[in-house]
Design a protein around this nucleic acid. Structure first.
Length: 208
DNA sequence: CTGACGATCCGCT
DNA sequence: GCGGATCGTCAGG
């Protein structure tokens, strides 16, 4: 990948080899501040991850892999950590980082990023001008970065979809996940993480 | 084949 | 805060 036109991400600092091997809840926190990059024919776009949610597999009623549910869609969750699990929600594509050991179907949903490179491209893709609204939601950031179902199963350790070292969050907050109200007790688990006070976090709950 | 269901977004109140 | 849009996936007949 050419770094020529990147103003904030040159050079890339690769993540340590074992970065994706840590336990899912730790990884969900460690992903905050990492730079998510995607390269397409249209160009390069990237953003710092500012909000994540952990989905803990068989015991988590909110997870697609609850009860070890294994279908064509969830299959990739059963593979090695560090690959992309993309799926379509209504009209939007959402992206997860697969985590946990092989055959343990855990994943981390990327809920929001802070735009870094390719902001003009993001505006064009999202068809809006306001920077704050470009990537402050899981469906918004995939559209802004050009992430699609074609990225299903790709490794985050190599282009075109890449995760590299970014910034170190000053403070991290933790609370309940969003949009899973029909999942029994699982809806109250504090498995959502975000960079405290970051303006690109998708939304705030009254009670966390 | 059919229908039910969302890990959402957007516009409007 | 609320409701409609809108569509791929999955399970059941």
């Amino acid at each position: 990948m050419s770094n020529k036109h990147l103003k904030n991400t040159n050079p890339y600092n690769p993540l340590p080899e074992d970065f994706f091997q840590q336990p899912t809840l730790k990884l969900a926190e460690a992903l905050l501040g990492c730079l998510l990059i995607n390269e397409t024919e249209e160009g390069i776009a990237s953003g710092y991850i500012v909000e994540t949610e952990a989905y803990m597999g068989p015991e988590d009623r909110a997870a697609h892999s609850f009860g070890n549910r294994r279908t064509k869609r969830t299959e990739i969750m059963f593979s090695e950590a560090g690959v992309a699990y993309t799926y379509v929600m209504h009209t939007h594509c959402l992206v997860n980082v697969v985590s946990g050991p092989t055959d343990k179907p855990e994943a981390i949903l990327i809920r929001a990023v802070e735009p870094v490179d390719g902001i003009e491209l993001m505006k064009k893709r999202r068809n809006i001008e306001i920077p704050k609204n470009l990537t402050n939601g899981p469906g918004k950031l995939t559209k802004a970065l050009g992430i699609t179902m074609g990225d299903y199963g790709r490794h985050f350790t190599e282009p075109p979809l890449l995760l590299v070292k970014g910034i170190t969050p000053q403070e991290i907050s933790r609370g309940k996940r969003i949009g899973i109200d029909n999942s029994g007790e699982a809806k109250d688990y504090p498995w959502r993480f975000w960079i405290t006070d970051n303006p690109f976090v998708s939304r705030h709950r009254k009670k966390d």
